[in-house]
Design a protein around this nucleic acid. Structure first.
Length: 496
RNA sequence: GCGCCCUUAGCUCAAUUGGUUAGAGCAACUGACUCUUAAUCAGUAGGUUCUCGGUUCGAUUCCGAGAGGGCGCACCA
């Protein structure tokens, strides 16, 4: 249906022409509203039959014509309200124009509030105005009541089309709007939480001459005037820590990171990351901040309409388990004392595949994932990871085989990752150089030596705790959503 | 990247073992109806069955290739 309009679309185009012929524009410039729909509904006192004149505007979502009268429902951001049109109140000419109105049109209506025989607050229209003619029918579903239970038939259930045409998905699904409102409230709550603790929200480059702060394949681009490559960031970390050097002791950023990797139900190429850094704090302090933050936003999302029911009540402190002790218990032996061959044998025994191709850190991580992470349901901190698994964290005081790092797990998934941040530029240079060797050897996830970052560290970087939280994943956990595309307004899709 | 499944009217779905003109609800169009709310009633119209190729007297149905999507696996410190 590219060139030839089908009859449904054709009929709507014809109505635009018919409106134009009557001197009525199909697309307006504005409408002076006095009430949102929900406010208008509550503006009629219970004991009053006829109230004030209101002006409401929104989308026609239902239409029931009755000859010389018609009922309709109009929906806006607040909810919906019923409209009542009478030929004798509107006049013949205006009433006949209503034939040119369709479900989906954006209209403005003025008139006094009234109550119908069934008690529903309704606008008895004395004026009606077309604000935007809908040329394409929205796929509204239907509701029916079977044995007293309301069953909603979605008119728009194809997941692909809902992602591609999120505007239509939102327009016909109030629960989808509720979900994304709740997500926005979560972000607002995070900002309020951090702002109240003297964190400064900052913006750091998305386009970076050198990417780092995580291990991932980047998106690459090119700046024409400078004739140089630029990369979309894979993490915020290194720029935020530069700012701590500069004297902003507490900073945070909420923004998109970009990773040029596979797409599945928990991965989108661009995703929302919260990172925050607190000078003079170590990872123990950051654990307290994280559990308070998570518990707070859970409370906020729980208060959101419709989606709140699924949200768990979280009460700090969250349990803490040690990486080493928990894996040793699950394994029945000390993993750090095992040879590589013994680790590979254990991994195989626990159903992990392709163990022969795995490095020692990878084997440790796989074993922990299979034996411990997968069993964690309620939010739990895993602390003190082996140094092999944590190249960016400071060594643990008193045990240099471990690092001061924690991850927060819930429902088997990682929600947060944090360290006592490495602030020794000499050590940092060694680690960068190791990365550079991997990169030279063909590892496309390894990064190079970031000389500017080293220069910043050499000026003196305060000790600090740093935390990264993937906000898409956090929101998925809170609302029990299985697919990341359901919490991203416009997920990445192949071209149609 | 691998495996399984899906793609039929604007939307949601049917179509017997491969068999007549691919059906239904909603939406649309025409008409009736001045308190309806899944409004109701009567009628009309609407299709490149994802694309290309093959098998067959005959393909929505079977086979091959391709496109898009879903789920699972792999990858993602």
């Amino acid at each position: 249906m590219s060139e030839e309009l089908n009859h449904v679309l054709k009929a709507r185009r014809d109505k635009v022409d018919a409106l134009a012929a009557a001197g009525v524009p199909a697309f307006a410039y504005g409408y002076a509203r006095t009430h949102q729909a929900a406010d208008a509904v509550s503006a009629l006192p219970a004991d009053v039959e006829e109230g004030d004149v209101v002006r409401v505007a929104g989308r026609l979502v239902a239409w029931r014509g009755h000859g010389k009268t018609a009922f309709a429902h109009l929906a806006d951001g607040s909810g919906r309200i019923q409209l009542y049109f009478r030929k004798d109140a509107l006049g013949d000419a205006v009433f006949e124009q209503l034939a040119l109105y369709d479900i989906g049109d954006v209209v403005g209506v003025a008139g006094p509030l009234m109550r119908t025989r069934t008690g529903e607050v309704t606008v008895r229209a004395t004026e009606v105005e077309m604000l935007a003619k809908s040329l394409r029918p929205l796929p509204y579903g239907k509701e029916e009541v079977v044995d007293g239970v309301t069953i909603r038939h979605s008119g728009f259930s194809d997941a692909e089309q809902r992602y591609r045409q999120r505007y239509a998905d939102l327009a016909v699904h109030p629960e989808v709007r509720a979900l994304f409102r709740a997500r926005s409230r979560m972000t607002t709550a995070i900002r309020a939480f951090l702002d109240a603790r003297d964190f400064l929200e900052v913006e750091t480059p998305v386009l970076q001459p050198m990417y780092g702060g995580a291990a991932a394949r980047p998106f690459t681009s090119h700046h024409n005037a400078l004739d140089m490559p630029l990369f979309l960031r894979i993490a915020d970390e290194l720029y935020l820590k530069r700012l701590v050097v500069g004297g902003f002791d507490r900073v945070y950023e909420i923004g998109h990171d970009f990773r040029n990797e596979g797409i599945d139900r928990t991965h989108n190429p661009e995703f929302t990351m919260l990172e925050f850094y607190q000078g003079y704090a170590d990872y123990q302090e950051m654990m307290t901040v994280v559990e308070q933050l998570i518990a707070h936003v859970a409370q906020v999302v729980k208060a959101a309409p419709i989606v709140g029911e699924a949200v768990p009540v979280l009460t700090p402190p969250f349990p803490r388990i040690e990486w080493h002790a928990s894996l040793s218990t699950a394994l029945g032996r000390d993993p750090l004392l095992c040879t590589d061959a013994e680790l590979a044998a254990e991994a195989k025994r626990h159903g992990i595949e392709k163990v022969d191709a795995m490095s020692r850190p990878k084997l440790l991580d796989e074993l922990f994932g299979a034996l411990v992470e997968a069993t964690i349901d309620a939010p739990t901190f895993v602390v003190d990871y082996p140094v092999e698994l944590s190249p960016l964290a400071k060594p643990k005081r008193g045990n240099p085989a471990l690092t001061e790092r924690f991850e927060l797990f819930a429902r088997g998934r990682e929600l947060a990752n944090a360290f006592s941040e490495l602030n020794d530029p000499i050590d940092q240079r060694r680690r960068f150089e190791a990365q550079a060797r991997l990169k030279a050897a063909g590892d496309d996830e390894a990064t190079g030596v970031d000389e500017d970052y080293l220069r910043a560290m050499e000026y003196g970087m305060p000790p600090m705790g740093g935390v990264g939280i993937g906000l898409d994943r956090l929101f998925m956990y809170l609302t029990n959503t299985a697919n990341i595309r359901d919490v991203i307004l416009f997920p990445t899709m192949r071209p149609e």
